[in-house]
Design a protein around this nucleic acid. Structure first.
Length: 818
RNA sequence: GCCGGGGUGGCGGAACUGGUAGACGCGCUGGAUUCAAAAUCCAGUUACUUCGGUAGUGGGGGUUCGAUUCCCCCCCCCGGUACCA
């Protein structure tokens, strides 16, 4: 009597069994190869979304596969629990961010467990607990003593009506999301970490990351943006001031027709005191959003400051302009402008009627037209006095040397990377462990006084962080002189917490230290999995933190993540699922209706992990259908009773072919899961095998033996993807040991041997026929057989054969004239 | 704007190293089963075709015996853009 496939029953039972057996509890084992698999931990937003299901299923499939390879697999899970949404929810629902967050964690933990993910829950952590954040406070104070953190003013988005700082996300079309007021830029003092001190390492160590996608390494390299150039000093007339500019094209120095400074540049601010037009312009720039996209796409505008700069070589005077495209945060906040050889300068010069002076001409016959566009390629110098005739490369050095001798400039390596501003004027985050004393200045909170606890019993109303109006939080004594002082009320950027959680998972129970020797046992993470949207920021900050922790003696490697898999998004109707678009699909409903195995199978089958995945209700049904067929196939097989021993010497050709397919599939699936991570093609291969099996009409003893082999191998291959149904079917096939503890099957090489192969026959690159030849046929024999083929003859008769190309095992191409 | 990725049947995708374009799945069509439906099973399914073939992987050009794959130019979509996580 056949059992029906009821996923909910099977899955609950199997999950209970894993729980009882402590299947996924992991302890360090010196006798086994370790494998640390980590999927980016979620923000506890309230419920899982499809992106989570995809992310964690990928991690679980890899973890289970590696376990079948005999490795000691660590797969932990936790919560990136600080962040803005908790404050928004607090305002909306009048509930404290802490309780909202903890409730969400409890609910989402249940959802993850229902998906059958093999986590070691004993290592669970939440970043909003003092047990976690105390250690990053501790690290920050260490870095403070080392001089790796500092305070300076930086621009934020400011809403003048709500009197609060806005995240870029809270700025909609340049206005506050809540009151629609025009957002302003405001400069306020903030803490920065000197990531630029590590720029060179962060760039160079990308070479160690051969297990990372090339595109992510490229993005990080571009983000760090190392450039070699020259810092050049321009004098300012009627003053002793020096205006430094940074350029990567010193060869164009003689073509400078103006100098542009950022609106917030001290020189512009000073000139504005006596210049109404400039004042207005700076005011306008203040109304710009702080995001790079907004800055760069805004129309290029400027105002002359009235100041004149002195050219360091010729002594000529060139005007100083304030311009909205010059960023105060990059280089020196000032650039020299060479309209003839830079497109942005060119457009700006045309707009404001500034001179365009050509100083570079091509060394080849490249065409250019300065009346239409700038000539931006390198070449040879003209109109450049003593530097005429030099190539751009030679002129780079000649001009740099000249300036250095004159004390008017020097070569410099510059990075696009800016120091990391970690201050947030928000409540729901880790308090910055600094005390501001009127006499001693900024003082780190002593180790004994850590953690600085964030009060959790608060009311958030949108008018700014509640701890900023809690004297009981911020009033304190200076740890150095004992005078009355005030605590920082800003909190850390939440990227702070997510920059080291991977390490804490190795020793989450240690209450004496940030990390212990277990960190070096498990790190680096062997496989890290997360969204491509994290390609730069999170992954760069985590790499930076790893190096900080290394230099503190906490870990010994240079890099945290050996292999990286960047998963694509889950889309519906071609766009990202989002509440605002109303195109979300709740994974819970999916699990409730079809079970976790179907959800997992669909996620793995619908697209390769790195590509975006288009949601489809119908395709989910298809995945479910396959599992039902699989279930039935096993049931029908076992109903026929005992299976005889397989004797490979007596098999029919059909059964030999089936065994070949079984072991070809096994080879492919192992490669697809283990190396390529293309779970979709792995599943397709198993489906093909099952389709072949379904067509088999032979029900001899030996056929049943081969079917048993096929089903066993199919179940083992699918078990990392759909572990619950496979657990059950494995038992039905007569095994006592649980499938989760079984090793990956061995390929029988002898089954793969083939005596005949099919070759494609092309004439002039077009497929004309197929021929079957013995596997070890030589080129001449293949040629003869192909030429003799009727269909081929038609296309080659009466024609001169120019060439014959034979690709062994694949095809033969006959090239004829005419 | 800048950086990165993508574009293949009606749809999701496959083709891994330049060698059978469209595996596998969905959908659709026809059939079987059924009182009927659902479910299930079987067959077919790129377009055009004089049934020999021809065209075809966003558009245009190039390299090659052979290009979805390599090169050049262009178009469109998506991600990131430093205070969303």
């Amino acid at each position: 009597m056949q059992q029906e496939y009821i996923p909910a029953d099977i899955e609950t039972a199997v999950q209970q069994w894993w729980h009882d057996q402590q299947t996924f509890r992991t302890v360090e084992d010196p006798h086994k190869e370790k494998y640390y698999c980590l999927a980016m931990f979620p923000y506890p937003s309230g419920q899982l979304h499809m992106g989570h299901v995809r992310n964690y299923t990928i991690g679980d499939v890899i973890s289970r596969y590696q376990r079948m390879q005999g490795k000691n697999v660590l797969q932990p899970m936790g919560w990136d629990a600080f962040g803005l949404p908790a404050e928004n929810a607090a305002i909306k629902n009048k509930v404290a961010p802490a309780s909202w967050t903890y409730d969400n964690i409890d609910y989402m933990r249940g959802q993850l467990q229902r998906l059958g993910l093999g986590y070691d829950w004993e290592r669970e952590l939440a970043t909003c607990t003092p047990e976690y954040y105390r250690w990053e406070q501790w690290l920050f104070t260490r870095l403070f003593e080392k001089g790796l953190v500092y305070k300076k003013t930086a621009a934020v988005n400011w809403c003048p009506v709500d009197n609060t700082v806005l995240a870029n996300e809270q700025v909609v079309d340049g206005c506050c999301w809540r009151c629609d007021t025009k957002v302003e830029k405001r400069e306020i003092p903030q803490w920065f970490m000197k990531i630029t001190d590590y720029a060179e390492q962060l760039l160079n160590d990308l070479d160690q990351l051969s297990g990372w996608p090339e595109q992510v390494r490229a993005m990080q390299a571009n983000w760090i943006g190392r450039s070699e150039g020259v810092e050049i000093k321009f004098g300012i007339t009627e003053s002793d001031e020096v205006l430094s500019v940074y350029t990567t094209r010193p060869d164009t120095l003689m073509g400078v027709s103006y100098v542009a400074v950022a609106a917030e540049h001290p020189l512009a601010l000073r000139a504005a005191q006596t210049n109404i037009e400039l004042q207005t312009f700076i005011e306008q720039c203040r109304q710009m959003e702080t995001s790079e996209a907004a800055m760069e796409t805004a129309e290029k505008q400027g105002v002359a400051t009235g100041l004149m700069a002195i050219h360091p070589v010729t002594g000529e005077l060139v005007p100083v302009w304030a311009a909205n495209f010059v960023l105060m945060g990059y280089g020196t906040g000032a650039v020299m402008s060479v309209p003839a050889h830079d497109q942005r300068d060119y457009e700006f010069a045309n707009k404001y009627g500034l001179p365009i002076k050509q100083v570079i001409e091509p060394t080849d016959s490249a065409e250019y037209d300065l009346s239409k566009a700038a000539f931006t390629a390198k070449g040879a110098l003209i109109n450049s006095q003593q530097f005429d005739g030099l190539t751009s490369a030679d002129a780079f050095n000649a001009i740099a040397d000249f300036l250095e001798q004159q004390n008017k400039g020097e070569k410099q390596v510059n990075y696009r990377l800016r120091d990391w501003g970690v201050s947030r004027q928000r409540y729901w985050g880790t308090p910055i462990p600094i005390i501001n004393c009127p006499d001693c200045g900024a003082v780190a909170v002593p180790e004994n006084d850590l953690p600085v606890r964030l009060p959790e019993d608060v009311v958030v109303d949108g008018s700014g962080s509640p701890i900023k109006s809690m004297p009981e939080f911020y009033q304190c004594a200076c740890p150095q002189c004992g005078a009355a002082a005030e605590r920082e009320t800003d909190t850390f950027d939440t990227f702070f917490e997510s920059s080291w959680y991977y390490a804490r998972f190795t020793c989450p129970d240690n209450d004496k230290a940030m990390l212990d020797e277990r960190a070096d046992h498990w790190l680096p993470v062997d496989q890290y999995i997360g969204g491509i949207e994290h390609a730069v920021l999170h992954l760069l900050y985590a790499r930076f933190f790893h190096k900080l922790m290394r230099d503190e003696g906490l870990v010994s490697g240079d890099e945290p993540f050996k292999n990286l898999l960047t998963q694509g998004m889950v889309l519906k109707d071609g766009t990202k699922m989002s509440k605002s678009k109303g195109n979300t699909v709740d994974p819970q409903a999916l699990i409730d209706q079809y079970g976790a195995d179907t959800a997992r199978l669909f996620m793995m089958f619908a697209a390769p992990p790195e590509q975006s995945l288009e949601w489809s209700d119908k395709a989910v049904e298809g995945s479910n259908r396959f599992l039902k067929r699989l279930w039935r196939s096993v049931q029908e097989h076992i109903e026929q009773g005992e299976v005889a021993e397989l004797d490979i010497d007596v098999l029919s050709d059909e059964l030999k072919a089936l065994r070949r397919q079984i072991h070809q599939t096994l080879t492919k699936v192992g490669d697809d899961i283990g190396r390529r991570h293309t779970f979709n093609t792995a599943i397709a291969a198993v489906m093909e095998l099952m389709n072949t099996l379904g067509k088999l009409t032979d029900n001899s003893e030996q056929a049943r033996a081969v079917i048993q082999e096929a089903l066993e191998i199919a179940i083992l291959m699918l078990s990392p993807i759909t572990p619950h149904i496979c657990h059950q079917l494995w038992q039905l096939l007569g095994h006592d040991e649980a499938v989760v503890n079984v090793s990956w099957p061995q390929v029988d090489e002898s089954a793969l041997v083939q005596d005949k192969v099919e070759l494609m026959v092309q004439v002039n690159g077009k497929l004309r026929s197929k021929v079957s030849v013995v596997a070890d046929a030589d080129k001449d024999a293949i040629e003869l057989i192909a030429m003799a083929d009727e269909n081929v003859k038609r296309f080659i008769e009466d024609k001169e054969i120019r060439k014959v190309i034979v690709v062994p095992g694949r095809l033969i191409n006959i090239v004829v004239a005419g």
